[in-house]
Computed example of a mutant assay.
Amino acid sequence: MNVPAIRALLVDDELLARLAIRQALATHSDITIVGECGNATEAKQAIEALSPDLIFLDIKMPGMDGFRLLHGMRRDTARPMIVFATAYGQHALQAFDANAIDYLLKPIDQARFDQAMARVRQHWGGLNNVATAAKSAYQQRISVVCGEHVRVIAASDIDWIRADGNYVHIHASGKSHLHRETLTGLLASLDPARFLRIHRGIVVNVDRIAEVHPLFQGSAEVVLHDGTRLNLSRRFRASARLALGMS
Protein backbone atom coordinates (compact mmCIF):
# COMPACT_ATOMS: atom_id res chain seq x y z
CA MET A 1 0.00 0.00 0.00
CA ASN A 2 1.24 3.48 -0.92
CA VAL A 3 1.10 5.61 2.22
CA PRO A 4 0.35 9.30 1.45
CA ALA A 5 2.78 12.04 2.42
CA ILE A 6 2.34 13.58 5.86
CA ARG A 7 1.21 17.23 5.89
CA ALA A 8 2.74 19.09 8.84
CA LEU A 9 1.96 22.37 10.60
CA LEU A 10 4.58 24.14 12.78
CA VAL A 11 3.25 26.01 15.81
CA ASP A 12 5.76 27.98 17.91
CA ASP A 13 6.00 31.63 18.88
CA GLU A 14 9.77 31.63 18.22
CA LEU A 15 10.87 31.91 14.60
CA LEU A 16 14.22 30.24 15.35
CA ALA A 17 12.43 27.25 16.89
CA ARG A 18 10.31 26.81 13.76
CA LEU A 19 13.46 27.12 11.65
CA ALA A 20 15.13 24.37 13.73
CA ILE A 21 12.23 22.00 13.03
CA ARG A 22 12.36 22.87 9.33
CA GLN A 23 16.06 21.98 9.28
CA ALA A 24 15.43 18.74 11.18
CA LEU A 25 12.74 17.80 8.63
CA ALA A 26 15.09 18.36 5.68
CA THR A 27 16.05 14.68 5.64
CA HIS A 28 12.42 13.50 5.88
CA SER A 29 11.11 13.89 2.33
CA ASP A 30 7.78 12.20 3.10
CA ILE A 31 6.75 15.07 5.40
CA THR A 32 5.56 18.30 3.78
CA ILE A 33 5.24 21.55 5.73
CA VAL A 34 1.91 23.16 4.85
CA GLY A 35 2.07 26.12 7.24
CA GLU A 36 3.63 27.91 10.21
CA CYS A 37 1.94 29.72 13.08
CA GLY A 38 3.35 32.00 15.75
CA ASN A 39 0.57 31.50 18.29
CA ALA A 40 -2.33 29.21 19.15
CA THR A 41 -5.00 31.55 17.77
CA GLU A 42 -3.38 31.47 14.33
CA ALA A 43 -2.92 27.72 14.70
CA LYS A 44 -6.61 27.13 15.41
CA GLN A 45 -7.54 28.88 12.17
CA ALA A 46 -4.83 27.06 10.23
CA ILE A 47 -5.92 23.65 11.53
CA GLU A 48 -9.49 24.25 10.39
CA ALA A 49 -8.37 25.57 6.99
CA LEU A 50 -5.52 23.16 6.22
CA SER A 51 -6.48 19.95 8.08
CA PRO A 52 -2.84 18.96 8.75
CA ASP A 53 -1.93 15.35 9.50
CA LEU A 54 0.80 16.31 11.97
CA ILE A 55 1.39 19.30 14.25
CA PHE A 56 4.71 20.22 15.85
CA LEU A 57 3.41 22.09 18.87
CA ASP A 58 5.07 24.32 21.45
CA ILE A 59 3.47 24.42 24.89
CA LYS A 60 4.18 27.86 26.38
CA MET A 61 3.10 30.61 24.01
CA PRO A 62 1.60 34.05 24.53
CA GLY A 63 -2.13 33.84 25.17
CA MET A 64 -3.46 30.33 24.65
CA ASP A 65 -0.95 27.53 25.37
CA GLY A 66 -0.59 24.31 23.40
CA PHE A 67 -2.78 22.22 25.70
CA ARG A 68 -5.64 24.70 25.57
CA LEU A 69 -5.36 24.68 21.77
CA LEU A 70 -5.80 20.90 21.70
CA HIS A 71 -8.66 21.01 24.18
CA GLY A 72 -10.50 23.53 22.04
CA MET A 73 -10.19 21.66 18.76
CA ARG A 74 -13.43 20.79 17.00
CA ARG A 75 -14.77 17.34 17.86
CA ASP A 76 -16.15 16.72 14.37
CA THR A 77 -12.75 16.82 12.65
CA ALA A 78 -10.06 14.17 12.47
CA ARG A 79 -7.46 14.69 15.21
CA PRO A 80 -3.98 15.32 13.77
CA MET A 81 -0.91 13.62 15.18
CA ILE A 82 0.83 15.77 17.79
CA VAL A 83 4.55 16.05 18.49
CA PHE A 84 5.32 18.52 21.26
CA ALA A 85 8.55 20.52 20.94
CA THR A 86 9.25 22.54 24.05
CA ALA A 87 11.98 23.80 26.36
CA TYR A 88 10.16 22.47 29.42
CA GLY A 89 10.45 18.81 30.43
CA GLN A 90 7.89 18.88 33.25
CA HIS A 91 4.88 18.65 30.93
CA ALA A 92 5.71 15.24 29.43
CA LEU A 93 3.07 13.27 31.35
CA GLN A 94 0.39 15.78 30.47
CA ALA A 95 1.48 15.61 26.83
CA PHE A 96 1.07 11.85 26.64
CA ASP A 97 -2.28 12.12 28.42
CA ALA A 98 -3.21 14.26 25.41
CA ASN A 99 -2.25 11.29 23.17
CA ALA A 100 0.86 12.96 21.78
CA ILE A 101 3.03 10.82 19.51
CA ASP A 102 6.23 12.17 21.09
CA TYR A 103 7.71 14.91 23.26
CA LEU A 104 10.86 16.68 22.09
CA LEU A 105 13.01 19.02 24.16
CA LYS A 106 14.69 22.08 22.72
CA PRO A 107 17.28 22.49 21.38
CA ILE A 108 16.30 19.81 18.86
CA ASP A 109 18.67 16.87 18.63
CA GLN A 110 18.61 15.33 15.15
CA ALA A 111 18.93 11.71 16.30
CA ARG A 112 16.15 12.14 18.84
CA PHE A 113 14.06 13.94 16.22
CA ASP A 114 14.51 11.04 13.79
CA GLN A 115 13.25 8.63 16.46
CA ALA A 116 10.14 10.76 16.84
CA MET A 117 9.58 10.69 13.08
CA ALA A 118 9.84 6.90 13.11
CA ARG A 119 7.00 6.82 15.66
CA VAL A 120 5.00 9.25 13.54
CA ARG A 121 5.39 7.04 10.45
CA GLN A 122 4.41 3.92 12.38
CA HIS A 123 1.26 5.62 13.66
CA TRP A 124 0.49 7.11 10.23
CA GLY A 125 0.80 3.72 8.57
CA GLY A 126 -1.64 2.26 11.08
CA LEU A 127 -4.15 5.03 10.46
CA ASN A 128 -4.01 4.47 6.71
CA ASN A 129 -4.38 0.70 7.08
CA VAL A 130 -7.54 1.25 9.10
CA ALA A 131 -8.87 3.78 6.58
CA THR A 132 -8.16 1.44 3.67
CA ALA A 133 -9.87 -1.47 5.39
CA ALA A 134 -12.91 0.67 6.19
CA LYS A 135 -13.13 1.95 2.64
CA SER A 136 -12.94 -1.55 1.16
CA ALA A 137 -15.93 -2.58 3.30
CA TYR A 138 -18.22 -0.21 1.38
CA GLN A 139 -19.90 -1.16 -1.87
CA GLN A 140 -17.81 -0.13 -4.86
CA ARG A 141 -20.22 -1.30 -7.60
CA ILE A 142 -23.97 -1.71 -7.96
CA SER A 143 -25.54 -4.26 -10.32
CA VAL A 144 -28.80 -3.01 -11.85
CA VAL A 145 -31.13 -5.32 -13.76
CA CYS A 146 -31.96 -3.81 -17.16
CA GLY A 147 -34.36 -6.09 -19.01
CA GLU A 148 -32.51 -9.31 -19.77
CA HIS A 149 -29.06 -8.03 -18.84
CA VAL A 150 -27.32 -6.54 -15.81
CA ARG A 151 -25.63 -3.15 -15.85
CA VAL A 152 -22.73 -2.61 -13.43
CA ILE A 153 -22.42 0.95 -12.13
CA ALA A 154 -19.31 2.07 -10.26
CA ALA A 155 -20.16 3.87 -7.04
CA SER A 156 -17.77 6.66 -8.03
CA ASP A 157 -19.86 7.28 -11.20
CA ILE A 158 -23.07 7.95 -9.27
CA ASP A 159 -24.21 11.58 -9.28
CA TRP A 160 -27.28 11.30 -7.08
CA ILE A 161 -29.99 8.84 -6.01
CA ARG A 162 -33.73 9.33 -5.52
CA ALA A 163 -36.03 7.08 -3.51
CA ASP A 164 -39.16 5.61 -5.10
CA GLY A 165 -40.82 3.30 -2.55
CA ASN A 166 -38.90 0.03 -2.49
CA TYR A 167 -36.88 1.21 -5.49
CA VAL A 168 -34.31 3.89 -6.18
CA HIS A 169 -33.45 5.86 -9.28
CA ILE A 170 -29.67 5.95 -9.62
CA HIS A 171 -28.50 8.90 -11.71
CA ALA A 172 -25.04 8.30 -13.19
CA SER A 173 -23.25 9.73 -16.23
CA GLY A 174 -26.36 11.47 -17.50
CA LYS A 175 -28.61 8.39 -17.27
CA SER A 176 -31.17 7.16 -14.73
CA HIS A 177 -31.33 3.50 -13.67
CA LEU A 178 -34.18 1.93 -11.69
CA HIS A 179 -32.85 -0.41 -8.98
CA ARG A 180 -34.87 -2.61 -6.60
CA GLU A 181 -33.59 -1.54 -3.18
CA THR A 182 -34.69 0.99 -0.57
CA LEU A 183 -32.74 4.20 -0.29
CA THR A 184 -31.94 3.48 3.37
CA GLY A 185 -30.60 0.02 2.54
CA LEU A 186 -28.47 1.25 -0.35
CA LEU A 187 -27.11 4.21 1.62
CA ALA A 188 -25.95 1.89 4.42
CA SER A 189 -23.68 0.09 1.94
CA LEU A 190 -22.09 3.24 0.47
CA ASP A 191 -19.14 5.25 1.77
CA PRO A 192 -20.54 8.00 4.05
CA ALA A 193 -17.54 10.18 3.23
CA ARG A 194 -18.72 10.27 -0.38
CA PHE A 195 -22.52 10.01 -0.25
CA LEU A 196 -24.61 12.53 1.65
CA ARG A 197 -28.32 12.41 2.42
CA ILE A 198 -29.76 15.87 1.78
CA HIS A 199 -33.45 14.99 1.88
CA ARG A 200 -35.58 12.10 3.12
CA GLY A 201 -35.63 10.78 -0.44
CA ILE A 202 -32.39 12.09 -1.94
CA VAL A 203 -28.72 11.12 -1.59
CA VAL A 204 -25.98 12.95 -3.49
CA ASN A 205 -22.33 12.30 -4.29
CA VAL A 206 -20.58 15.20 -2.51
CA ASP A 207 -17.96 15.41 -5.28
CA ARG A 208 -20.74 16.43 -7.69
CA ILE A 209 -21.91 19.40 -5.62
CA ALA A 210 -20.98 22.75 -7.16
CA GLU A 211 -23.10 25.23 -5.19
CA VAL A 212 -25.53 25.51 -2.29
CA HIS A 213 -28.22 28.22 -2.42
CA PRO A 214 -30.03 29.11 0.85
CA LEU A 215 -33.82 29.31 0.57
CA PHE A 216 -36.61 30.19 2.99
CA GLN A 217 -37.26 28.65 6.44
CA GLY A 218 -33.91 26.88 6.74
CA SER A 219 -34.08 24.85 3.53
CA ALA A 220 -31.64 25.19 0.65
CA GLU A 221 -30.99 24.12 -2.92
CA VAL A 222 -28.00 22.03 -3.97
CA VAL A 223 -26.71 22.57 -7.51
CA LEU A 224 -24.60 19.83 -9.11
CA HIS A 225 -21.87 20.39 -11.68
CA ASP A 226 -24.21 19.24 -14.46
CA GLY A 227 -26.82 21.82 -13.44
CA THR A 228 -29.15 19.46 -11.58
CA ARG A 229 -30.95 21.22 -8.74
CA LEU A 230 -31.89 19.25 -5.61
CA ASN A 231 -33.66 20.21 -2.42
CA LEU A 232 -31.60 20.27 0.79
CA SER A 233 -34.14 19.99 3.59
CA ARG A 234 -33.76 21.70 6.94
CA ARG A 235 -33.55 18.29 8.67
CA PHE A 236 -30.32 17.40 6.88
CA ARG A 237 -28.74 20.85 6.68
CA ALA A 238 -26.52 20.40 9.75
CA SER A 239 -24.90 17.21 8.40
CA ALA A 240 -24.49 18.83 4.99
CA ARG A 241 -22.80 21.84 6.58
CA LEU A 242 -20.21 19.57 8.20
CA ALA A 243 -19.66 17.46 5.08
CA LEU A 244 -19.22 20.47 2.82
CA GLY A 245 -17.29 22.70 5.21
CA MET A 246 -20.03 25.31 5.25
CA SER A 247 -19.95 27.97 7.97
Rank of each mutant, 00 (worst) to 15 (best):
1 M>C: 14
6 I>R: 02
9 L>T: 06
11 V>A: 09
15 L>H: 09
16 L>M: 08
23 Q>S: 12
26 A>F: 06
29 S>T: 12
38 G>K: 15
38 G>M: 12
39 N>K: 04
41 T>S: 07
44 K>D: 07
46 A>Q: 03
49 A>E: 08
55 I>E: 09
56 F>K: 01
57 L>Y: 09
57 L>K: 01
59 I>T: 06
65 D>I: 02
67 F>Q: 06
67 F>W: 08
69 L>E: 05
69 L>V: 03
77 T>R: 02
80 P>Q: 12
85 A>N: 12
86 T>S: 11
88 Y>I: 03
96 F>V: 08
98 A>I: 00
100 A>E: 04
101 I>W: 01
104 L>Y: 00
104 L>Q: 04
107 P>K: 07
110 Q>H: 12
120 V>Q: 08
121 R>K: 08
122 Q>H: 11
123 H>Q: 15
128 N>Y: 13
129 N>A: 15
131 A>I: 01
132 T>E: 15
134 A>P: 01
147 G>Y: 09
154 A>G: 05
156 S>M: 04
165 G>R: 05
165 G>W: 01
166 N>L: 06
166 N>P: 02
167 Y>H: 14
167 Y>T: 03
171 H>S: 02
172 A>N: 01
175 K>G: 01
177 H>M: 05
177 H>R: 01
178 L>H: 12
179 H>A: 08
180 R>V: 11
182 T>L: 01
184 T>C: 05
187 L>D: 11
192 P>S: 06
192 P>I: 10
201 G>Y: 04
204 V>H: 10
207 D>C: 07
212 V>L: 11
214 P>T: 14
214 P>Q: 13
215 L>T: 15
218 G>E: 05
220 A>C: 04
221 E>H: 07
226 D>S: 02
234 R>C: 14
235 R>E: 06
238 A>Q: 07
242 L>R: 13
246 M>A: 06
